[in-house]
Computed example of a mutant assay.
Amino acid sequence: MRALLIGGTGTISSAITRLLVEKGWEVTLINRGHRNDELPQGVELLVADMNNEDEVRELLEGRHFDTVAEFIAFVPEQVERDIRLFTGMTDQYIFISSASAYAKPNHDYRITEGTTLANPYWQYSRNKIACERVLMDAYRNDGFPVTIVRPSHTYDERNVPIGVDGSQGSWQILQRMKQGKPVIVQGDGTSLWTVTFNKDFAVGFVGLMGNIHALGEAVHITSDESLSWNQIYEAVGRALGVKPVLYHVSADFLASVAPYDYQGSLLGDKSVSVVFDNSKIKRLVPEFKCTTRFDEGARICVDYMNSHPECRKQDPEFDAWCDQVIETLERAKKALKEN
Rank of each mutant, 00 (worst) to 15 (best):
S191L: 02
E113R: 04
I184N: 04
D142I: 02
P105G: 06
W171A: 07
Q168R: 14
D200V: 01
E132C: 14
K181G: 00
K199N: 08
W171I: 06
M177D: 13
P182H: 11
P182R: 09
N159A: 11
Q175N: 12
D108H: 15
T196A: 06
A118E: 04
G187M: 07
D200H: 01
F197V: 00
S125L: 05
Y155S: 04
C131I: 13
P151E: 09
I184L: 15
V160R: 00
E157S: 08
Y124M: 06
S167K: 15
P182N: 08
Y124D: 03
T116D: 02
W193S: 05
A130C: 11
I184F: 12
Q186S: 11
V146C: 07
N119T: 00
P161S: 07
G189I: 11
G180S: 05
D137I: 12
K199P: 04
T196R: 05
G166T: 12
H107T: 08
G187I: 03
N159I: 08
D137W: 09
E113Q: 07
G169D: 09
T147W: 07
I184V: 15
G180F: 04
V160D: 00
K104C: 11
Y155C: 06
T190Y: 05
G163K: 13
I162Q: 10
K104Y: 10
V149R: 06
S125V: 04
T190G: 03
Q123E: 14
S125A: 15
I173R: 12
